[in-house]
Structure formats: C-alpha cells, structure tokens
C-alpha cells in the first residue's frame, strides 16, 4: 500500500514543491495550510480510519504553529507517527522546540529532494 504523508506548511510554494517531490517518490500526500488545518486533517483521517506514515510540518505558521500542532497530534491515535519539522538555518532553537514537543527529526530549508528523502528514510520504514 502507498505510504501516506501529511504535509503542513503555510507557503503555497513549499506545499507545491514538496508534494511534487513526495508524489514523484511514490508517496500519497495530504496537504494542510496551517496547524489548525493540520489538526482537522488528522482528525478526519482518524475518523475515516486512514493510515498515516509520516507528518512533515513547518514550525513558523499563522493560526496554530508547528509546536502547537504536534502537541495536538500527540493527543490522537497517530501519536506514534514520526514527525519531521522544517526549519531554517537560523533557527536552532526551533529544532529543540520541535523535539521537546515530540518531533522525530528535522530538515532545514531549503533542501534538495534527496535530502528530504534521506530524512524520511531515517524515520519511516522502507516500502
């Protein structure tokens, strides 16, 4: 079965390019535009009994930021799903915040497709 990834980012460019790369690599991708939307997507997956292999989320987002989003995910049945957070070089503290919230790893923007897939390989079982 296709692995399912939820990608949460407020930038349309990020969503488009990351989804493009993930779909190319054979993943099914659901997009969310911010933390709140992410929570809704997760809850609806929970209701429909869908599977979820990975969550990738930006930290700096309007409405609900990545840290808030992660802590919401940890309240659902997807709490053991690996989570990668996106940061930029200048935000080392963000990595820490994400990790404290329960993220599994991080990825610094901008990144190449190989780097994205390399990070995914670290936390998701190969197909």
């Amino acid at each position: 079965m296709e692995k399912h990834i939820l990608f949460v980012d407020d930038s349309p460019t990020m969503r488009s390019s990351v989804s493009f790369c993930l779909r190319n690599a054979g993943y099914r991708v659901t997009e969310a535009v911010d933390g709140e939307d992410g929570v809704e997507k997760v809850q609806s997956m929970e209701e429909k009994g869908e599977s979820l292999s990975l969550i990738i989320t930006d930290i700096n987002m309007p409405k609900m930021d990545g840290v808030g989003f992660i802590s919401k995910v940890k309240e659902t049945e997807f709490k053991f799903v690996p989570i990668l957070v996106l940061t930029t070089v200048a935000e080392e503290s963000v990595i820490k915040k994400g990790r404290d919230a329960g993220a599994s790893g991080w990825l610094m923007k901008p990144f190449q497709p190989e780097q994205l897939l390399w990070a995914i390989k670290k936390v998701v079982w190969p197909k």
């Binding site: 940890k74 053991f80 799903v81 990790r99 329960g102 670290k122 936390v123 998701v124 079982w125």
Partner: peptide
C-alpha cells in the same frame, strides 16, 4: 523513544 515516532530498528538498519 517510541513516543517521538522513532524506531531503533530503522536506526540499526541505517
């Protein structure tokens, strides 16, 4: 460890 979505076997695999 598992609570942050990690899996030791993946690390051993890597």
């Amino acid at each position: 460890f598992f609570h942050s979505g990690q899996d030791p076997l993946l690390i051993l695999l890597g």
